[in-house]
Structure formats: C-alpha cells, structure tokens
Design a protein around this nucleic acid. Structure first.
Lengths: 336, 336
DNA sequence: AAACTAATTGAAATCGCTTTCATGAAAATA
DNA sequence: TATTTTCATGAAAGCGATTTCAATTAGTTT
C-alpha cells in the first residue's frame, strides 16, 4: 500500500487555479493576489502538500544541494570543518551530500563525478593533497568548487585556509628561541603538499632564520593517527631531538603518551607542538601546545564563498587566509 | 558561457538508436544486442555522457540517496557510526545526505521533512531521544527509517543497538564486586530515554542485585562534553562516591583530568568506567575502562537493513542487538 | 467613458530520463 | 515451409515541478 503523494496538480485542481499559480505561491513569487495566495495556502495545508525537490531540481536546474568531499568523517579536524559547512549550508537552505574519500585520489575523482551526476550546485572539497587529475576534474565540473582547509599550490580553485607555513615557522621559531637545536618534524605523508610544501617550508624558514642546520634525518613521515604517534616516539627519542613539531593532534597525543611511558618527560626532555587544536590537545597530560585554527570558520567561510559562486557572484578574494594563533599549553615550557 | 550538457537524447541521435535503447545500456538491461550496446557505449564515451541523476530520480521515483540525521558530526561516537553507514551506502551505490540536528526535536522534524522532500529512498536516524512528534513523522514518511545507535522504547522503528542496560549493569556490577558502595552515575540529560530508561535501569539493576541502596543524589545530569566533565568532577568528589559510571567518553575524560588535578587519584580514589570506547579512552592517563561497542558495525548493519527495506524485502529481525564488551584499562583496578 | 498601463493568471513547453507497449526481425518448433 | 516464441528496438507517455508568453482583469489617467 504505497503512500499517496500529493502533487502540485492536485493542489491546483482543488484550489481551482493553475499549476503556475501554485508554483508561484510555493516559491514566494510576489505576483499573486493575496486572496489567491491565501486560498492556495489553505489547500496546501489541507492536502499536506510538499513540493517534490527532485522534480523541482529537474525543472529549475538547481538542486539546492552541495557536495562535500571529506577524507574521513571520524577525523575530528575535518569533521569540525564539516560542521561549519553544514551550518552555513542550512542557513542558505542547501543540503549536503557528504562522502568520504579516504584521501585516495581515485576515490576522490569518482566521488566528484557521482556528485556532479546528482546535479549538485557546488562542491566543497577537503583533503590533504590535490593532484593533476583532480585539478582537471575541478575545471571540468560545471558546478563551482571551493577548497576548505585544503591547499592547492598549483591551482586557482578558491580556497579557505590559514597560513600553514607561517604558523609552523612561528611555532618552530618559538622552540628555537627556547634554545632547541635539534627539532624534529613529524608529519603525514610527504607526498601531500600540505606537508611537503607548507609545513616543511615553514620549518625550514625558521631554521634558516636562526642559521640552524637542516637535517632531513629529523623529518618523520607517519600516519595521521594515535598509533602512528606511539610508534614514532621511540624513533624520535633516538634522534636526540629535544622538541618536535607534529602535524596531527592524535599523532601528537601518541607521541606524548609514549614518551611519558618510556620515561621521557614532556616538556622537560621533549617539547611538543601540534597543528590543529582539536579537543585532543586538551585531553592529554600534559595538554598540548598547538597552532589554533578557526576550524568551524574555515568551513563556514568556504560555504559562504560557495553560495556566492553558485549565484554567479564575484568573489572578493579567491584565496582566503584566516588568522591562526598559538595556544600555549603544558607540552612546551614558558617562553624565555 | 554555460558548460554544455550532453543528454541521453544526444547519445541516441549520434548512435542512431532510440533513447530507450540508450537507457537500457546505461542501466545494464540485458535486452540489448551486443553490437548495439557497443555502438552506444562508444558514443557515450565519445560525447562523455553522464546520466543526470535528478532526471533519473524523477522518472524512476528512486533517488539512490539516503538521508542521515546525526546530532553532530563532530561527535566522535556518532561520526563513527556515520562512517559505517557511508561505507555500506557506497557499496550499494547510495549517496548520503547528512544533516546535523543538534539533538533538538524541532530541528529533527524539519530535517526529516526536507529529506523527504528531496525524495530520499530511506533515512537513518541517530539521536539520543525520540519523542512522539518524531515517531509520528517516521510513520508518516513514505521512505523507510532505521535507527542507528539510537533507542526508541515505544516505537517499532527498526534499529541497531547494543544492550545498553545490560552493559551498564555489567560495568556497575564489576565496580560493586570490587567493593564499591557509593557509585556515581554521570549521564547526559535524563529527558533522553537512552539515559533515563536504559543506563539508569542497568545501574539500578546492578544495585538491586547486590542489595545496595539506590540514592538519587549519586545521579548526575550533565552535557556530553569535556568541559561538562571537568565541572562535574568536584561535585562527584564531594558526594563521597568512590567510583563513577559515565555516559560519554569526553565527559569521562574531563572527570579524570579534573580529578587528578585536584589530587583525587584515579583509580585509587575514584574508579571510572565510560560508555563508548572512542579514541578518547586511550588518550587520557590513566586510560579509561569502557564498554566497547562495534560503532562502525552499528552504522553498517543499520545501512544494510535500510537497503533491504528500500527494496521491499522483509527484515529478519527488526531490532538488532549487537554484542558489547568491556575494555579494562587503567581507570579501574583489576578485578578481585 | 475611452484608452492605456500594471497586476494576475493560465496554457503549454520543458527539464532528462524511465518504462510500458507495440512491432518487426530473428530463432525455434512443428 | 508455416507458425510460434523470443529478442531487440522505438514511440510515446509520463515523473512533478518551473518558466515563458500570451491573455485576461483590474486600476489609472485623461
């Protein structure tokens, strides 16, 4: 017993007006006599009519849906961005089709294509790296794309980020000023430009400015996870580094816990600074000093930009850089 | 300069066949002569034709999209379920429209309605409480609904959960066996049935079985957050409780950190058990003993059930209860 | 009251695809 | 070879809205 669906035609008939008129009142078109509007509204209410968004999408060529590509919803960093995106989307009456890409290039392309097939009006992309193939797809897509918390050194896709290089440079400089000579850098895959082209650059700049030698033995490549951190810790300990900058909060938590459990004191023997200021930084003991990012806002601003693009408006700036900060917590010593 | 879109009509013309035939090859209908199929496929390739999912949805009355209602994507517990949902959805070629509800009844109803308007083929609902209004909407919806990690004591909506009451009962019983007489219970809002009707029940059963008195002064109601935990800790400390069962991992982390910082030793002065076994339980020191839940599977199974319902198949069981466990970590002492 | 402008409406085409039904061709059976 | 069956295919009718354009009605202005 399939549930009966009420269509615009039913409303038109019952209200003794044309479908066009019903469509007008549903869409708030002002060219409707108040009396007519009232009559139609009454019928809509009585029949409990809900416009079919799919039909509407086909006719109007706008789905009021945007696609969001995220590496993994369970990653707090990206989930926080997603929250900002969704709130603004809802504010503008858009729905979100959310898909996990696992940061895998092929999957990202697939997902983008199915999103386009669903006729999304726009796409927000989050990821750690953008390769040529993906870039080509962005160009090819007929809906606008905005990057959130995601850098593309090559492309000209609109994006919202903080200045990662500067943030790392400042963090590392702080460490240097406290006397550290051997500072490790624990990152995710160096195949990703966020690591290889931004964080590493910031790190090198700090070293250069302080005339400290660069030693690639101090650069560690690991996964974005707690376990990756615990496994990496002994290696870092062996390197003789007295401080470490970490690219992911969970990884940092792993490093800290493993350090303490192996008798390495944080911050006395090893100072730790991390990147994303998620709740994890407050949960560990010691709590972790971190670059602070306006996570929610990165998502929110990206979505705002996308709404402009979807309405064919010009963007004030294509590449938005939001301010970052540094939250000092117990995993670093106080400044000299 | 709007990008040109290739339609099924274009393909039909170029391939010198009818739209029906193109539709057949696109949908893998076997009733097409191999030679024809090949010819059509070649044209599809050449024109780079992608079927418009919206048009398809209108014509076929199936959108291959399911709605997912989640309290908050940044909540690791629900995000983990969402990940399971998405993976299975992708496996069955469904897309996910994800919306945050903030656990707010009104918002949940709204969101459900816009999902239905978008013609989703089904809905997965996650939340902490289901009231009559929502229940009524579920009934009214013409697409099937499945609850994931979400209980509804009244309703008969299909659902996937663990036996929360039993899990709490076992946890609390463990505490009792270690000699605790005053065991606090720190939960989210008691207006939510997961707390008032499941966790509390399990707690009382454990007490009853051990002939321990029930004292509602030991029941605490707070928010699902780290800060709520830190604020609650002194109150618990004052109560004289020597153990506490907590309904949320972040809250538990807050309680643990605040305890230690105020000189209360965990587990010596206060044993702590929590509910969701998220990564948080491994990050705190001491790590937190927790009920373990197959989070990913809860989502995955829920999505599997939904696909059955969407294809008008019968469910083997409407109420699926997955097994739970208890992971003993340092926030509790070892069993006697 | 005639003439003209502005405000409301409705008819009908469209959006891009699925699906039913009829038909002719090819294969199988008698 | 005549007669059934089975295959392949196309024509055309929707699906449920939006939107253009023309027609009608109501209001204004002389």
């Amino acid at each position: 017993m399939e549930k009966q669906t009420v269509t615009i035609y039913d409303v038109a008939r019952e209200a003794a007006v044309s479908m066009a008129t019903v469509s007008r009142v549903v869409n708030g078109n002002p060219n409707v006599k108040p009396a007519t509007r009232k009559k139609v509204l009454a019928v809509i209410e009585r029949l409990d009519y809900r416009p079919n968004a799919v039909a509407r999408g086909l006719a109007s060529k706008r789905s009021t849906t945007v696609g969001v590509i995220i590496p993994d919803v369970t990653n707090i960093y990206f989930a926080s961005l997603a929250r900002g995106i969704d709130d603004i989307a809802m504010m503008y009456k858009y729905n979100i089709i959310l898909t996990n890409s696992d940061d895998a290039g092929e999957q990202e392309v697939n997902v983008l294509n199915t999103l386009m097939a669903k006729q999304v009006d726009g796409v927000i992309f989050m990821g750690n790296h953008i390769d040529d193939k993906l870039r080509a797809e962005f160009k090819r897509a007929k809906a606008p794309v905005v990057l959130a918390g995601t850098v593309d050194p090559q492309g000209d896709t609109p994006s919202v980020n903080i200045d990662y290089a500067a943030a790392v440079e400042e963090s590392v400089t702080n460490l240097i000023q406290r006397g550290h000579k051997k500072i490790a850098l624990a990152l995710g895959p160096l195949s990703q430009s966020i690591n290889a082209e931004y964080r590493l650059t910031g790190y090198k700049r700090a070293l250069n400015k302080a005339k400290l030698p660069y030693d690639d033995k101090l650069i560690y490549e690991a996964g974005y996870s707690y376990d990756a951190g615990t496994k990496l810790q002994p290696v870092i300990a062996d390197s003789g580094a007295t401080a470490v900058f970490v690219g992911d909060d969970e990884m940092a938590a792993g490093i800290i816990n493993a350090s303490i459990e192996s008798g390495v004191s944080v911050p006395d023997d090893l100072e730790v600074i991390t990147s994303n200021d998620t709740i994890v930084t407050q949960i560990t003991r010691p709590a972790i000093t971190s670059i602070t990012q306006p996570l929610y806002d990165i998502g929110a601003v990206a979505m705002r930009m996308l709404t402009k693009l979807m309405n064919d408006k010009e963007l004030d700036e294509k590449t938005v850089t939001l301010p970052y900060g540094i939250a000092r917590r117990a995993s670093t010593k106080s400044a000299k």
